[in-house]
């Protein structure tokens, strides 16, 4: 564990806490894409299958349970909670995320570290996470004004993977046989997708203005 990875995990956890805070405090999920939340739940379920088979550390197990539990709770909330689901931007959240799932699964069958069920699922979860944020970014562009908590949520979500890239660079130079090229390439794509959001987020912070994404 290095400082980049720990900061990355804490940033990821913070993004989930901000999202939970927004939904709980405002009883609203406006500006949040249910499709992105469903994709993230799928990412965690596909990636953490080894939760009960390979024990890495207490930290690892606890964080996996938190990520799986929170992503499922958010999806449940946005689908079932009568107050919350009323504020869901159903007509704006129309990105066909099933194509993302199919595409990532096909890619995982072709490109993986080893053609074994756990490895294919792991690669699938890595590729899917890289594109999971697309429905959310599309929704933000369509909904124009972004409330603070939603903006912070998306910013933290993008920042965590950027910190993971620093972690991979650090591990590459410090560990002899370290190779995570699948996660690295997908992580670069994932972070690049946030590039324009980061730009407008920085502008809104610099000008102390409301976050506006050009539609």
């Amino acid at each position: 564990m290095n400082v980049f990875r720990l900061t990355g995990d804490m940033t990821h956890l913070a993004s989930i806490l901000v999202l939970l805070l927004k939904i709980y405090a405002t009883k609203s999920c406006s500006g949040i894409s249910l499709k992105t939340q469903e994709l993230y739940a799928l990412v965690f379920l596909a990636r953490y299958l080894n939760l009960f088979t390979d024990f890495i550390s207490v930290y690892n197990t606890v964080m996996k349970l938190v990520f799986i539990g929170s992503s499922l709770a958010i999806v449940w909330c946005m689908r079932m909670h009568k107050m919350v689901k009323r504020s869901y931007d159903q007509e704006l959240d129309t990105f066909r995320h099933y194509f993302l799932i199919a595409g990532c699964f096909l890619l995982a069958l072709l490109v993986n570290e080893k053609f074994m069920f756990p490895e294919v699922l792991w690669a699938f979860s890595i590729y899917l996470e890289a594109v999971s944020t697309i429905p959310q970014l599309v929704l933000l562009q369509r909904s124009g004004n972004v409330d603070n908590l939603t903006g912070q949520y998306v910013f933290l979500l993008g920042a965590y993977r950027a910190l993971y890239i620093l972690n991979w660079i650090y591990r590459y130079f410090t560990e002899p046989h370290f190779s995570r090229w699948i996660a690295c390439v997908a992580g670069l794509v994932q972070t690049a997708l946030y590039a324009d959001f980061f730009y407008y987020y920085f502008l809104s912070w610099k000008n102390n203005a409301k976050l506006q994404l050009p539609s």
């Binding site: 990875r5 490895e119 046989h177 190779s179």
Partner: peptide, 10 residues
């Protein structure tokens, strides 16, 4: 070998 690297990251 690299493919057996335990997935120690989240």
């Amino acid at each position: 070998t690299s493919s057996e690297t335990t997935k120690d990251e989240l």
